[in-house]
Amino acid sequence: MKLRKNVAISDSGFIFNPSTGDSYSVNPVGMEMLTLLHEGTPKEKIKSQIMRDYVCDESTFEKDYYDFTLMLRNYKLLEEDE
């Protein structure tokens, strides 16, 4: 799973998709996940990093990661060849 290359992520949590012209805002945990996805980080690595940095158990991560990426797909922010 990979974020579209041309999606612009800014430090303020502002996301801009230049292909569609849509923009979004994300919260800090979302921002961290997006940045990791943008770098092409595999899911297991994202999981260990989030669980290292935040008070978060594995099942919570799994649930929320699934939902978050569902929304990314919904907003057409993921590479099509997924």
């Binding site: 800014s10 303020s12 949590g13 502002f14 801009f16 923009s23 805002s25």
Partner: peptide, 11 residues
Amino acid sequence: DIKEFEKISTE
């Protein structure tokens, strides 16, 4: 500039 839109939207 979209930066301005970003600023008013996020801040």
